[in-house]
Design a protein around this nucleic acid. Sequence first.
DNA 1: GTTATTGCAAACATTTTGCACCAGC
DNA 2: GCTGGTGCAAAATGTTTGCAATAAC
Lengths: 150, 150
Amino acid sequence: MDTSPRAVQDRLAAFRGRCAALGLALTPQRLAIYTVLAGTDGHPAAEEIFRQIKPDMPSLSLGTVYRTLELLESHGLVGRVHGLDDQAHFDANLDHHHHLVCTRCHAVRDFDAPALRGLAIPEAALGGFRVESHRLHLLGVCATCQAGEG
Amino acid sequence: MDTSPRAVQDRLAAFRGRCAALGLALTPQRLAIYTVLAGTDGHPAAEEIFRQIKPDMPSLSLGTVYRTLELLESHGLVGRVHGLDDQAHFDANLDHHHHLVCTRCHAVRDFDAPALRGLAIPEAALGGFRVESHRLHLLGVCATCQAGEG
DNA sequence: GTTATTGCAAACATTTTGCACCAGC
DNA sequence: GCTGGTGCAAAATGTTTGCAATAAC
């Protein structure tokens, strides 16, 4: 995901617009939570988002972070990613993309390979299942963890 | 996954062999847990496996189910699947296959499409990540849930 | 001023762990 | 008799919820 200041600004502007359109109050908490997601390439869990904001907003409660993420996901403003731990991770990048999941450190990174778009799935194999979307997780070892091998 | 009596028998025989080779005791609990997985196409969670065995083995404890699944997974005898809920589901099918995940009822079913094997992933997109395996989740609505639509 | 949103704390669900007891070699 | 495995209950973890106080529109 493009995390240049410009791209982040664009994302935040779009977020404000979507909130207004949906009738959602643009509270400082919501803005802070979305800003964390809009500005990172990672896929933080609720707890991690909370820790990042807490110093600047001591009144923030973890419950609000969970509620906000749930709300934003239900309106399609953020995505939920399941990695290897049983913890939900979140993502402001809604473009079609896939994930690299490190089996050592459980980090999740985005990647996109245009060659993988338009996967041809034989209808016959699906047995009546109606496919609406797909997600591909590549499991392996990230560069950082490889460096630590020995 | 082939759940014919013959295929299940084969799987159980292989399981006994693997346990012996690994020096793992073949306790009634372990056998019961693996049997549930070997005989189903679904991907039950620990609690579900527990419920299925409990009537026939009242002394069974849920902790043992968790410990056993963890043990079997660590020895590569079963696989762990993350669907849409934040609950681990388990799978005795270790052949290369993918999953159909129903966004309504969260059921997970296997499917295999030979066309998807040998996905060509451009190295350049990976940025040093070493890919060891991949999993594809197709999200959509299963036949059962489609039938219930109105 | 209303209504939606927050903070807090308690509840909840899932999974892990410590420890005493038990079973098999 | 050791070793490993189980059952139980407590704890840890991640998440949701009820309710009174508060802030956004």
